[in-house]
Design a binder for these strands. Structure first.
Lengths: 119, 119
DNA sequence: CGGTATCCTTTCGGATACTG
DNA sequence: CAGTATCCGAAAGGATACCG
């Protein structure tokens, strides 16, 4: 495929399962911040392997930042949205608005702030 | 997963390989319109199985419309973006703009209208 | 707590051949 | 031309156990 196409390349990490949901969960945390264990708890069904894999990818893409507090025991890891990550959430909001405009089966989501995405 | 979440459900078809690229190819056609064989030619690497599968999904989602001309032989099939499909292209544009703002390795795409997405 | 390692299953997509 | 049918391999993901 066309490796140089911005849209195509952006689709690459947009499209991976869990990736956007992880960003959304971080967004719901204080200052776009959550711990590994919180993410795990808030994303029912995700396995540790997949979660840690996605976190690495997202960090490599510059969408999140990892901060480890070595002074505490056990070690405490925090993940936080970067400005780029926050900006991507805005696009997800547009996507949600698109869905609410053009898909008719989202009445529940229209009535209230959806508990999951809270956008 | 949460089947009722608008964002989650939207991600479902955003995220499938080729789906957005098919929409982009249609967008590049006259009035958001292209034939099956054109799509196949314009999406190098896609197999007939995958293409026909994606087209069915996109039609079921109301993003494209299929029009068959039975009077001609061989049968001629046209696929066209619906208003919902066109609206989704706008979100893809936002996505592209996000990428161009936050990812530094897209200078070629910045300089010109990318030949592939033409957004 | 925050992961990694291993195994195993399933799904998806690619290749190809064929048909109305 | 516009697909469908069949087969196959790679890769992703789930379950589980374990470690610093």
């Amino acid at each position: 495929m066309d490796e140089n196409c911005t849209v195509y390349r952006t689709m690459e990490y947009i499209s991976k399962r869990w990736s956007m949901l992880i960003l959304l969960e971080l967004f719901k945390g204080q200052d776009g911040n959550k711990r590994y264990s919180e993410l795990k708890a808030d994303l029912p069904g995700i396995t540790p392997k997949v979660l840690s894999g996605r976190l690495k990818e997202l960090e490599a893409e510059g969408l999140i930042r990892k901060k480890v507090d070595m002074s505490s025991f056990p070690v405490r890891s925090d993940y936080q949205l970067t400005p780029a990550g926050f900006a991507l959430i805005d696009v997800v909001k547009d996507l949600k608005n698109w869905a609410l405009t053009w898909k008719i089966d989202n009445e529940a989501c229209k009535r209230m702030d959806c508990a999951r995405c809270r956008l």
